[in-house]
Computed example of a mutant assay.
Amino acid sequence: MRRLLVLLAALTLTACGQAPAVQESGPAAAPPAGFPVTIQNCGRTLTFDRPPAKVVTGYHPSLETLFALGLADRVAGRTNFSESAFLPGHRELYARIKEISPTIMLPQKEVMLAQGADFVLDNAMASFDAAGGYATVAELDAADSPVYILGGWCSPRETLEFTLEDTFTDLHNLGRIFGVPDRAAKLAAGLRAGLDDVRERIAGRPPVRVLATDGGRGPVNAYGGAGLTHQMITAAGGRNVLEDVEGDYTEVSAEQVSAAQPEAVLVSEYATLRGETTPSVRAKTADTFAVVRNSPAAADRRVLALPVAAQHPGYRNLLAIADIARFLHPGAFPA
């Protein structure tokens, strides 16, 4: 689990909420066209008789994926997003939605169950850990608040097995769940076209040796040869210098990182945590160049800040591949 999520899991929400008033139910309406819909997620079978109308989202990439599908009006509650990089047009949509947690984590159990959500979307299991005081997936299912985890990040093993195709699977699944399959297909087609454009532009160019890091001088927090960040580097025309290191987000000795001789560096950029600050990109870059001081990347001061939101499941990671490709192969993207 990412260091950011580990830090945030220790934070608790003390605000309280009230359960929605019980309303008398009338005759059951017939399911809309195309329903019921059945989806597999995290080894569970989810069946929807109608599109969700009162959604709660966890970490921001889940919310912005719904924004991309034109579903902002279905979201009744969201967590906080304090990172600087909102996608274009998203800050205004975000500001209109009720904040139910001051961190990226979902609120504590009682507050979460009181939301009365008919769908919960997140991209990691950290917010469903009973030991942390959170409502579990089973408890939310029992409360008719089914949970969908993006990217198949349902366990540490499945996080390592992530491929970019999982993002497309999520888009199509969400399109079916919300009754907008054509909208999802159009979004997916546009994203595939963007990836195809990158692939054509970088074809025949030698891969650039890339170190993806979250800082540290020893050990170094870095991204190994499995998972989402590794997939993004490869798709953007890079070669992960730690591709032989098992794991996704992991610790690597300074000696091994130094010996890798990267030509370019990606540094994770993320938020302020309720009065605490994570190391800045500038500080992490300084630490990294101190470790790889004899590398081509340090000599050229070649670094790109990569929002950590793009390193979690959600459609933003497909957009970020083009940004990384421009950084690695500027000649393939003339102005």
Rank of each mutant, 00 (worst) to 15 (best):
S145E: 03
L150P: 02
E110Y: 01
S84C: 11
S258M: 09
I324D: 00
H312S: 15
E64A: 12
P279R: 01
L273V: 14
M125N: 01
A131D: 14
R96C: 00
G216C: 06
A299H: 11
I233D: 01
G34P: 00
L164V: 10
P36A: 02
A226W: 06
E165Y: 01
S82W: 01
A21T: 12
V220K: 05
M105H: 01
A332L: 05
P51Q: 04
A143M: 02
P146Q: 03
N80S: 15
A203T: 09
V281S: 10
G58C: 01
A335D: 15
A226L: 07
A236R: 00
L8M: 14
F333K: 10
A143G: 05
G152C: 08
L195Y: 08
H90D: 15
T12E: 13
Q261I: 00
A185L: 13
G275D: 09
C154K: 09
P296D: 07
P219L: 05
L164W: 07
L46P: 00
K284D: 10
D170S: 08
A85P: 04
V55H: 04
A130F: 03
L5A: 13
G275N: 06
P181F: 10
V208I: 14
A259F: 01
E255W: 01
G175S: 07
A188F: 12
L87G: 14
D300W: 03
R201L: 11
L191H: 08
G204C: 13
A203E: 13
A131Q: 11
S268I: 06
L191N: 10
F67K: 05
P296Y: 00
E269P: 06
A305C: 08
A28T: 09
D166F: 09
